[in-house]
Design a protein around this nucleic acid. Sequence first.
DNA 1: AAAACGGGGGC
DNA 2: GCCCCAGTTTT
Length: 215
Amino acid sequence: MAIDIALFLETLKEEVKSYKVPVVDLISVQTRDPFKILVATILSSRTKDETTAAAASRLFREAPDIKALAKLPEKKIMDLIYPVGFYKSKAGYLKKLPQALENFDNRIPEEIDDLIKLPGVGRKTANLVRSVAFNKDAICVDTHVHRIMNKWGYVNTKTPLETEMALRKKLPQNHWQEVNGILVAFGQGTCRPVSPHCHRCVIADLCPAAAHQIT
DNA sequence: AAAACGGGGGC
DNA sequence: GCCCCAGTTTT
């Protein structure tokens, strides 16, 4: 078993500050508007931060709120968000979003079960929105977090959902917004699935992956 | 040139 | 569960 998970996170905390800003922080520093955070988060899946930020910026210039978005043709949305990954699918999700939000009084819902019902919003996106927009103690398990928690031996799970449930019991119910940022940044910046940057990893000497062969 | 890749929907 | 969506990065 690796070091205590709280110490693991504390050790990484300073390290990841020098990294390229993950989308978790990127969105929160730009806006506190739940609508924009939701839209940007939907755009961010399978897409780099810079690409997401540029696309979101273009889109928000034309559609700064729900009402404006509802008036935008799907083709227009598609052109604005290109070249984020799966832009055709996402344009479809965003086109349907205003109507879906009518069920929630035209506001962004805060509960996970409600968020998941929105088009283009799965568990990872819902938890990220809860964390960033509403400052909830939501555990955002993307593929990086899932992989790293298993690699470092903090969980032994098959699916991201299982990881989320397991982590919920392992960690104090606070500061999850920061934890999400730390784990995502570490997973993308250093402890990457292919060619991890072990040479500059601050906790490489504690890594349970023998000779750093396991990723 | 080919494969991998920061999810989610539809079936 | 399995397959699809797409541009970008890595090998």
